[in-house]
Design a protein around this nucleic acid. Structure first.
Length: 100
DNA sequence: CGGTTGACCAAGT
DNA sequence: GACTTGGCCAACC
C-alpha cells in the first residue's frame, strides 16, 4: 500500500524516542526524498499530533525552527525532555540526533 | 497545468 | 558574520 509523502514522514518520525532529535533534511533523506520543505509543510498539518513528535524535528543548523503552536512551546517541550536550548538553538544537537 | 507558498538548505556576496 | 539568492519537492489554487 502506498502512503502519501506526508504519511511517510509521520511513520519515520514516530520512531524518534523522547530526548532525541532529527532534522528536516535528515527526515526527508530517510524517506528517500530531498523535499525538506515538504517535510516542514507536512509537520505543520500533523494530523497525528500526540503520536508523532513533530516538536523533535529541528533545522540542520541546530535552530529549533517553527512550530504550529508557537516556537516557544516547542522549545519548552524539548527542554522538558532534557534537551538544552540556548537562544532558540539546540546546544550540541549532534549528541541528541537520532539515528534511523 | 502554471504559479505561489512553505515549521528548509547551502552557497555566494 | 549578517544578509541575499537560488534551489529543492510536494501541496494548494
Amino acid at each position: 500500500m502506498k502512503q502519501s509523502f506526508d504519511e511517510r514522514c509521520y511513520d519515520k518520525l514516530r520512531k524518534v524516542p523522547k530526548g532525541k532529535l532529527t532534522t528536516y533534511k535528515d527526515l526527508a533523506h530517510t524517506i528517500k526524498s530531498q523535499a525538506y520543505r515538504a517535510v516542514g509543510t507536512a509537520m505543520n498539518k500533523n494530523p497525528y499530533a500526540p503520536q508523532v513528535p513533530c516538536h523533535r524535528v529541528i533545522k540542520s543548523d541546530g535552530f529549533v525552527g517553527g512550530f504550529a503552536h508557537g516556537t516557544s512551546k516547542k522549545i519548552a517541550m524539548l527542554k522538558k525532555e532534557g534537551i538544552e536550548i540556548k537562544n532558540g538553538k539546540v546546544v550540541s544537537m549532534q549528541r541528541y540526533l537520532y539515528r534511523f
